[in-house]
Structures are given as structure tokens and as C-alpha cells.
Design a protein around this nucleic acid. Structure first.
Lengths: 98, 98
DNA sequence: TCACAGCTTGCGCAAGGACGCAAGTGGCTC
DNA sequence: GAGCCACTTGCGTCCTTGCGCAAGCTGTGA
């Protein structure tokens, strides 16, 4: 017995996770920065203007939402956008915001 | 002297407010329901499956984000989508979520 | 004016998020 | 191995959110 609304609810839940990942100015700034190519955590912390541990946490949120991928090169970790469509969504919401 | 990043920051802040409004399954359900036309608060509370005061609060969030408009008719308040593009954004994020 | 229906608001609580700081982990070089 | 760099994780604190419940409007009709 599936609790009544399972499918649609799960779908909305996943959509909500992504929307929540977009619901922070610093994370939006991260996405903007990554639109031009991949960057390291420390690069991003400079772009956004926050401490490295804080940036690492924001990136974890974006990663959990599936919006970014990471790649290790030596001791440096590079992040990149997982799906270019996320920028479309960003722009669209930005337009709605005027 | 403007605090360095004022304009872009304000822009991201407003985008974040909208994204946050989308970041809840019940509010997404509200938007879906309103896609077919305007509905009253009690209608929506039935569609979504929550209590009326709770629905009223969710609607206040959506209204603060500028995503819905309300209209009073007698003692009943009808809500409708403020901008059809919000559905596009919803669908887009939904696609990204797979 | 009274009673009622439809919404909103206030309050208290529990859960979650953002941040700073300190500590831990993994890779590089010497 | 020792030391260092880049990043992640843990912890404590403060602030915000979602919810249920009760109380307050506001409009309708008797």
C-alpha cells in the first residue's frame, strides 16, 4: 500500500531539493562562477567571498542536489556544473524576479 | 562607496527568495493546482492536504515572492499564478531532477 | 446585532540551515 | 617520516522554517 500520493510527492520532493540548493545567494554566485568553467574550492571561496570550510559546505549542498560534479587533481578538487540546464533555470527565475 | 557587490548581490538575493518559495513540496503542489485556474484557500488546503492556517502561511510565502496574486470575492479569497513563466521554471527544474 | 464561514495572525515547539572555528584526512615534496 | 597544502568534517551557536493550535479579523446573511 503506497501512502496515497507517493509518486508525485517524491517528484516534488526532488524538485524541492534542487530549488533549495538555488535558494542561497552564495550558491547562486558559485553557479555563475562555474558557468565559465571549472574552479577549485579555494578559487570559489575567493569569488564568493567566504571561508573555505563554508564554501565546502555549500558545494556539498550543490553536489547532493546533483548540480555540480567534482574532480580531484593532486591535492586540488575542481568543481564544474553537472548540467548546463541549471543555468537556464537560474536565468529564468532571475527574469521572473525582474 | 557601495559595498563592493551591491547590484549583483541584490539580484541574487531576489532570485534566492523565489527559489526558496519553490523549495517546498506543498508549495509546488499549490503551483500545480493553480496552473489550471484560480482557487480559494480552502480549495488549496484540500488539494495539498494540510490545514487552512498552514496553507495560508504557504500562500503568504508565495505572495511575498511575487509568484501568486490574490483576489477577494465576498468572504472568499481566490489565489492565481502571477506569472505563467513560474511553471516553466518549475518544469525545467523538474526535468533537471529527472 | 448575532451567529457563522473563510482567512489571517500570533505563539510555542521541533527541525533544519548558515556560519566560524578547530580538528581530521589525503596528496605532494623534501 | 616530517611538514605542508587543499579540502572535508565535526561541533557549537544563532537564525529561520514548517507545523499545530488558538485567537483575531472580515464579510454574509438571518
Amino acid at each position: 500500500m503506497t501512502d496515497a500520493t507517493t509518486d508525485q510527492d517524491v517528484e516534488r520532493q526532488r524538485t524541492a531539493v534542487i530549488a533549495r540548493a538555488l535558494a542561497d545567494p552564495k550558491r547562486l554566485c558559485v553557479l555563475e562562477s562555474l558557468s565559465e568553467g571549472e574552479l577549485s574550492v579555494s578559487d570559489l571561496s575567493v569569488c564568493v567571498g567566504c571561508q573555505v570550510p563554508n564554501m565546502s559546505q555549500h558545494l556539498a549542498v550543490l553536489r547532493a542536489a546533483g548540480l555540480v560534479h567534482s574532480r580531484r587533481e593532486g591535492s586540488t578538487v575542481y568543481y564544474r556544473l553537472a548540467d548546463p540546464r541549471i543555468l537556464e533555470a537560474y536565468r529564468l527565475i532571475q527574469m521572473i524576479a525582474h
